[in-house]
Design a protein around this nucleic acid. Structure first.
Ligand code: SF4
Ligand code: SF4
Lengths: 139, 139
DNA sequence: TAATTTAGCACCCAGATGGTGCTCTTCCAT
DNA sequence: ATGGAAGAGCACCATCTGGGTGCTAAATTA
């Protein structure tokens, strides 16, 4: 339905949160308490993200997750891809479709998909946070 | 999963097909045979489109559907909206969400959604058809 | 060693989506 | 007027995905 899955949303929320604490390791518990998300599920999501090396994890007391790269460089597209596969509006854009033979909109859809993908690639996790206090002066 | 539903795809295919026969009434049977789509389902979709006045229908022999407006003016967003509700990446963008209180990405997501919507509003059914402006031979 | 925290696995449940059948009504053509 | 063509309505089914959870093992640190 052209919607993000909850997993993606939760993932993005967590990433945004982590982005607001650069360097620090944050435990699932902390994040969940802060963002009021289903613990088990968020844990699952973060696991996936760390497997994909968008996050790095440390176990034991004081452990948790943190970003492996500055949020300004983490495109939304990357996150979505990890959490729900390739950004594609249709099957043919990801795998293949047996209607391709008689499909007259395939190329057109391709163009649309590319545009959507661009939107997602053009925005970063950092931009998700509202009204960042970062001064555009200190570059 | 950020994907179009089949209904939307089929709808777009049919609309594109109708766009290639301006003015003519095309029967469901004809369209289905041409595009190799599930008849019953496509009928359902076209029904919705005509109820939303994107198409107009005529019954009886020689009847069928045709566009109510030039395809160049029919935005993809319009079609998707009719077939699967408002273009929104998240619940909060369509209805509401009980996480809004603690959600830190809502405004950000809003921006993304707006961009996506723009993409869909900036493209028309006419643009779906290949082989108009350039030759799609080799890529 | 005890406490904390991630990793892995297996599972359940509800709702959305894809798809179909059949009947009724409308309307054009002859 | 009358039969056939085509749309409208309704009801239904099967499957898949997605949201969500429990429990145990492995790692790490105090
Ligand atoms: S080929 Fe056509 S029908 Fe098949 S997935 Fe692509 S757009 Fe959809
Ligand atoms: S408020 Fe946040 S969690 Fe709720 S739908 Fe919007 S983005 Fe998703």
């Amino acid at each position: 339905m052209l919607r993000l899955t909850r997993r993606s949303e939760y993932g993005l929320m967590a990433l945004a949160y982590l982005a607001s604490r650069p360097g620090e390791y944050c435990s699932v518990r902390e994040i969940v308490e802060e963002l009021k998300l289903p613990k088990r599920l968020l844990a699952e999501v973060l696991k996936d993200l760390s497997r994909a090396e968008l996050l790095e994890a440390t176990r034991g007391p004081g452990g948790g997750y943190r970003l492996t790269q500055p949020a300004e460089r983490l495109a939304l597209a990357r996150v979505v891809e990890v959490l729900e596969g390739p950004v594609a509006m249709t099957d043919c854009m990801a795998h293949s479709c047996d209607l391709e033979a008689s499909c007259i909109i395939q190329t057109g859809i391709g163009r649309v998909t590319r545009n959507i993908r661009n939107v997602l690639e053009g925005m970063t996790v950092a931009e998700l946070l509202p009204a960042q206090p970062e001064t555009p002066l200190a570059v």
